[in-house]
């Protein structure tokens, strides 16, 4: 298994919130995509983010990942600004879809190995170029320590037998598991998963859910996970955030699922969005 992330070594106190989102709003060409959202994520949370299509879930994730400009404050372990950027490599991110060239020649192993490339190693790489040093193993191959880590995460996601297959030859579900392995190999403190099992069959989805529960419990990785599947959220998440541009609810899972009014509001807004998309 992936070793527990050593937060203290990175100067982070365990008592801190992993993530604080404070009064965050995002506009796309004048249209409000997220309206004044605030919530916190504590260490060990498995937060399910629910909301209909166009509710702003992906936009929120992109803002957290520094890929989207926003108003308000987002803090990672209490840090903002430049310090926040240096902590970004501690987030493992699995997007809805990765748009890569269809004939990309990289194998599953190659893609997962990309996850071992953290900011720290890049600085080492820059030093390497400056000194014109020749550490050929690091340049041409993957170090034995990294290889070991990659093998372990491939085992976790059940892809060890496909390690030498090209990423472009895999099914959607297998590709998605590769990206989860790539996010895991970084030994992340926080994982952000944006509808990771969209278009994936039930068997693979169940395998995926058991993987995220395992890494959440055994590796203490905090997980934020967007999904439309309320049954999956009810089965696996520990907390729920419900949004549709505004945040309707954030709290314990049982509280959300026992609140009939909230569930009705969610169903109605989901239905309205569905009708709207259908009309378009």
């Amino acid at each position: 298994m992936v070793s527990e992330p050593r937060l203290s070594e990175r100067g982070i106190r365990m008592s801190m919130n992993v993530l604080d989102v404070e009064n965050v709003s995002v506009s796309h060409s004048g249209a409000l995509a997220i309206n004044n959202i605030s919530f916190s994520v504590q260490e060990g949370d498995l937060l399910g983010v629910v909301g209909p299509n166009g509710a702003g879930k992906t936009t929120l994730f992109r803002a957290i990942l520094g890929l989207q400009s926003y108003q308000g404050k987002i803090k990672l372990f209490g840090y903002e600004g430049h310090q926040y950027d240096t902590l970004l490599p501690m987030i493992g991110y699995v997007p809805q879809k990765v748009n890569f060239e269809p004939n990309f020649p990289a194998t599953v192993f190659d893609v997962v190995a990309l996850g071992t490339l953290s900011g720290k190693k890049l600085r080492k790489g820059a030093k390497l170029i400056q000194s014109c040093g020749c550490c050929w193993n690091r340049i041409f191959g993957t170090s034995s320590k990294d290889s070991e880590k990659i093998e372990k995460v491939l085992e976790i996601v059940g892809l060890e037998s496909l390690r030498n297959r090209r990423i472009s030859e895999l099914s959607g579900g297998e590709q998605q598991r590769t990206f989860i392995a790539k996010a895991l190999v970084k030994e992340p403190v926080l994982m952000i998963l944006d509808e990771p099992v969209t278009g994936v069959d039930l068997e693979v989805s169940n395998k995926f859910y058991s993987v995220i529960r395992r890494i959440n419990k055994e590796n203490k990785v905090t997980i934020i996970w967007a999904s439309h599947d309320l049954t999956a959220i009810s089965d696996h998440a520990t907390k729920v955030a419900c949004m549709n541009r505004d945040l309707f609810f954030h709290g314990e899972k049982d509280e959300f699922f026992s609140n009939k009014d909230l569930l009705k509001t969610y169903s109605e807004s989901a239905m309205q969005m569905h009708m709207h998309h259908h009309e378009l």
């Binding site: 990942l65 997007p95 990765v98 190659d110 990309l114 900011g119 890049l122 170029i129 340049i139 790539k182």
Partner: peptide, 20 residues
């Protein structure tokens, strides 16, 4: 020397950015 970051950036620019 820059083979790995270049490969990451070629595969997916946004993921590369998040990775530092």
């Amino acid at each position: 020397a820059l083979r790995k970051p270049l490969l990451h950036f070629t595969f997916d620019e946004e993921q590369a950015k998040v990775n530092g």
